[in-house]
Nucleic acid binder design. Structure first.
Lengths: 113, 113
DNA sequence: ATTGATGTACCAGAACTATCGAACAATGGG
DNA sequence: CCCATTGTTCGATAGTTCTGGTACATCAAT
């Protein structure tokens, strides 16, 4: 069972969140997770190398933007929507709205329900 | 008379704006300019080296966040509020609102939370 | 023309970032 | 126990960012 560092929501700071979302790849990941569901790194990864994906998910996680839950050999990633809504009300919705409009979709993440 | 590059507002892209604002110094600059008035690099600079200030203003300018007007020996910087409002309605207000709340004020007095 | 004020250009160094491949660890299924 | 799946860690590389110093350009005023 893996251990991941997640900052407390009150320790999440604005520049870190903005930085995490200032990369097209990570913005695409956030857009892919905007529905609130969990997805594994593999589902989000597209054609990126696994280690690159690990890196981007780590940046998002350490900025406080997403949470990882380990189960078996997989790790399920989801946005910390409610917590961020409390910390920065409306910010994520607002940002991801523009991101969708501008076409930042996850590298490959087909919505496979 | 100096010449500055300013991107067309339709070429301004979200990750660049987020990146420009993902640095505490630049976020402070943006907050200082949030009233819509113009300020010179010197007024914004605080204790930073002039060349460092030039760098940060350039990042903000090239991201499309601010406009520079040269007059005499001075350069007057102001946020592109109306244009950004058209491009990303509400984004800047929203972001700068949180930035103020979190204490990102002009380059000098920074007591982040 | 000289001086002072303001800001830029360019350089350098340290730190950081994005990307990938290879090796490794953890888990679950035969 | 062996093996495939999943993801992390490590090392490497190339590029970027932040900071400041020095030199330079521009302009105003004397």
């Amino acid at each position: 069972m893996r251990h991941y560092f997640h900052p407390e929501i009150e320790d999440v700071c604005l520049p870190d969140v903005l930085f995490a979302l200032s990369d097209a790849t990570r913005l695409g990941i956030a857009v892919a997770l905007a529905d609130g569901k969990e997805r594994t790194a593999g589902e989000l990864g597209g054609s990126l190398a696994k280690s690159t994906m690990t890196h981007h998910l780590k940046v998002l996680r350490e900025a406080g933007a997403l949470r990882v839950r380990s189960e078996g050999t997989r790790c399920y990633n989801s946005l910390r929507l409610e917590e961020l809504q409390e910390r920065f009300p409306g910010l994520l919705d607002h940002l991801l709205g523009f991101a969708v409009k501008c076409g930042y979709t996850s590298a490959d993440a087909r919505s496979r329900d």
